[in-house]
Structures are given as structure tokens and as C-alpha cells.
Amino acid sequence: MFSAPLSTQIIGKNLVYLPTCASTNAEAQAYLQQSYPLEGTVVVTSEQTAGRGQRGTTWETAPHQNLTFSIILAPKFLQATEQFQLNVAVTVGIVQALQRHIALQIKWSNDLYAEGKKMGGILIENILQHNYLRYSIIGIGINVNQIDFGQFALTAPPTKQPTSLHALTQQTYNLQHLLNDILLGIEQTYFQLRTNQFNLLKMQYLQHLFWYQELHTFEVAGKLVEGYITGIDSQGRLAVAIENTLQYFDVKEIVFVQ
């Protein structure tokens, strides 16, 4: 059971709790088709049975142990070409909200990592009108109290091993309190986005970026290369210095190896 947070101004003021559902993003989509929900509407569930990840992939989560929710935003001030800024604001908002519990890092472009393992993920789905964003559905999954990751942990490669807040701190968390913190954190960065503080948000994104300015191995066009992540461009492409040459990569063009 979840209820609306007291601390926020818009996000979560209208909160829809579903004890169980297939996917909170799909539920949020359905609300948008039926009506014009308030900006900041949150759909949260205790048991997501068919969570979606990136196209064709899934987000699996144990019931009642983790956070799975979606936020409906109306970032009409953003042009289509600026959409990555939303990803920056949301990831930074979550990292800052959980800072007092754990040092989260953002694994480019939108995964949440702690101690080198994956603790959360984001799925953003936008609805565009002409060249502007009309609505954005921000789906968020964060592993909180889950201990056993079953088959997934056995089959995932070393760079994609799952973890949870509990697994790293040995503490059990109140999901409602954590949700309140995260909604407030995202609201703060969303307000910064609204006031065009792109540079501030980008600096914070880089500050928490996994492997930032460290020498690591990547796979590019089937070959292993060594390089340093030096930043992101306005589209969100990753800038990596490889043999003294700065190259920009789209998400499908580079793989983090070790």
C-alpha cells in the first residue's frame, strides 16, 4: 500500500496505487488515453507481473520488496531533440534522493549502479506533438529489499549483476519513505529542468557517472579498445577518448567490457 507524499508540490500528489499490475508504464499509458491526468500523477504497484525494460526486454522484480512506479510528466517546454535532458534530470534526481543511503552511480545512459552492480533502471516513453514533448512517462524500478535474484544472477554477465539496497547495506527499508524521497528528488531536478538549468544537471550527471574519467575496456565495432569517458553531448551520446581521439557513441555503438 502506498499513499501520496506530503513533501512534494506536484509529483505524487495524485497517486494511483495498484496492488498488482502488468506494467506501471502501460497503466500510465492507459490513463493518458482515457483522460488528461494531472502532471505528476504517479502509478505505483506492489507487484509488477510483466515489467518492461528496453524494447523487447523485461524488468523482473520480486513482489512487495522493491519499488516499481511510473510518473506522468508534461514537459512541454522540451523540444524533441532535447529529450535526453529528461533522462539526465530523472537519473540525477534518484541518485541525490538516495545519497544518504547509498552512493549510486549512473551507468550511461540510464541504469542505476551501486558497487559495480545494477540496482535500478529507467524506461522513459514520450508522447510527442510536432517537435515538442506533450507527455512523458517515466518508469522506474529500484531493487530495495530483495535478497535473492535467482536465475538472473547466475546468468547475467559480470557488468550486469543485480543488487539491491538491502544487499549492500544489510538494512531493510520502508518502501513508502523511500518512494517519498525519490519523488521529491525527481521533483527538484525536474524543476531545475523546467528553468533550463541544463548545465547544472549535466555536471551532476557527470559527477555520478559510472567509469567517468577512468581507463576501461570497451567494445566498439567488434573490437576491444581502451578509453576514458570524458562526458556526454547534448543528444546524450557518450564521449570517449580512445588513443587521444575523442569519439561519440550512440547506445548501440559501444559496450562496457571491464
Partner: peptide, 13 residues
């Protein structure tokens, strides 16, 4: 249109 892992529904104008 997927761009940088964000999914954008494009509407007919």
C-alpha cells in the same frame, strides 16, 4: 522513434 533508450511515440499531424 527510439533515441538514446528513450522511446518517442510520433503522432500523425
Amino acid at each position: 522513434i527510439e533515441a538514446m533508450k528513450l522511446f518517442n511515440e510520433i503522432e500523425s499531424e
